[in-house]
Simulated scan of single mutants.
Amino acid sequence: MLRLGVNIDHVATLRNARGTPWPDPMRAAELAQAAGADGITAHLREDRRHIRDEDIDTLMARLTLPLNFEMAATPEMQAIALRHRPHAVCIVPEKREERTTEGGLDVAGQEEALAAFIAPLREAGCRVSLFIGHQPEQIRASARVGAAVVELHTGAYCDLDTEGRHDERDAELQALQQGARLAADLGLEVHAGHGLTFGTVGPIAAIPQLAELNIGHFLIGESVFLGLDGAIREMRRRMDMARA
């Protein structure tokens, strides 16, 4: 079955907007588990704009689902990951001025540095994932540096769908399908995520090589109308229908 990882970053965004203890990201993680999530994703950014260090402390102490700890490839984040040793570490590109992650990691352009960065995380027992585009050179480089997983960036596909540029959307979907096949052929576990909605998840979930989708912002936004339980269950239903 295709796994669903629920990203709880934007529960923390709402909390931080008012400087209160609520809504509580840990409570969101517990609700996500009850609704059928297979894992929890949290991105600790350099500027701590949503998830904070104490959130990671709480998640590691109380969470019973696997934690996918998203982070930039910096010494600070490596030290935090080595201290906590989460189930998975997903390395993402990060720029302070961006609203959200804008693209995939340039693995091919920094192979030596990433291989050295990844090695102690692997030795600590973390499954290392790289958040990348579907370009073959990035997928091959990810295998060479020692990643166990690649997460393919679906943001462009979702944006093209929203803008009604269907021919370009279909070409992007085909490129994602080809990238997933290549990654699986190289022995990598393949995940995908970014920007997925009820309307766009089906064709992505149908890619047979995918083992996991990570979805956050849309689910947190849709929970205003459906509740978090309802939003997650509906996403799970659509993923399962696509696989069926």
Rank of each mutant, 00 (worst) to 15 (best):
Arg48Glu: 05
Tyr157Gly: 07
Leu65Cys: 07
Ala119Asn: 11
Leu63Met: 11
Pro120His: 05
Leu130Ala: 12
Ile91Gln: 00
Ala116Gln: 15
His84Lys: 06
Tyr157Val: 04
Met71Ile: 13
Leu82His: 07
Leu114Arg: 06
Arg144Asp: 13
Glu123Lys: 14
Glu97Lys: 04
Ala115Pro: 04
Leu65Trp: 02
Met77Leu: 13
Ala81Lys: 03
Cys126Ser: 12
Arg140Cys: 14
Arg48Thr: 02
Ala79Gln: 15
Ala147Cys: 03
Glu163Ala: 15
Thr101Lys: 00
Val128Pro: 02
Glu98Leu: 00
Glu137Phe: 11
Arg45Gln: 10
Gly39Arg: 07
Met60Asp: 01
Gln174Arg: 15
Glu168Leu: 15
His84Ser: 01
Met77Val: 05
Val128Ile: 13
Asp106Glu: 05
Glu151Arg: 01
Val150Ile: 15
His84Pro: 00
His84Phe: 09
Glu112Ala: 15
Ala113Lys: 15
Phe131Val: 06
Gly103Ile: 00
Asp53Leu: 14
Thr64Phe: 09
Arg48Pro: 02
Phe131Ile: 01
Arg127Ile: 12
Leu63Arg: 03
His43Asp: 02
Glu76Lys: 08
Leu65Tyr: 07
Glu94Ala: 03
Asn68Tyr: 10
Leu67Trp: 08
Ala72Met: 12
Pro75Val: 04
Val107Thr: 07
Met60Asn: 05
Glu151Pro: 01
His50Lys: 11
Pro86Glu: 08
Thr41His: 09
Arg165Val: 04
Ala79His: 15
Ser129Phe: 11
Met71Asp: 11
Met77Trp: 06
Gln174Lys: 14
Ser129Tyr: 13
Gly103Arg: 04
Leu105Glu: 00
Ala141Tyr: 07
Leu44Val: 10
Leu82Thr: 11
Ala143Lys: 15
Arg144Leu: 13
Met71Asn: 07
Phe117Ala: 09
Leu65Ala: 09
Arg62Val: 09
Gly146Gln: 13
Ile118Gln: 04
Leu63Trp: 05
Thr74His: 11
Cys90Thr: 14
Tyr157Gln: 02
Glu54His: 15
Gly104Glu: 00
Thr162Val: 07
Pro86Ile: 03
Gly133Ala: 07
Thr64Pro: 12
Leu121Ser: 02
Arg165Ala: 06
His153Ile: 05
Glu54Cys: 10
Arg52Glu: 14
Glu168Val: 01
Phe117Asn: 10
Arg96Leu: 13
Glu46Trp: 13
Ile118Cys: 06
Arg144Cys: 12
Ile80Leu: 10
Ala147Gly: 03
Asp170Glu: 15
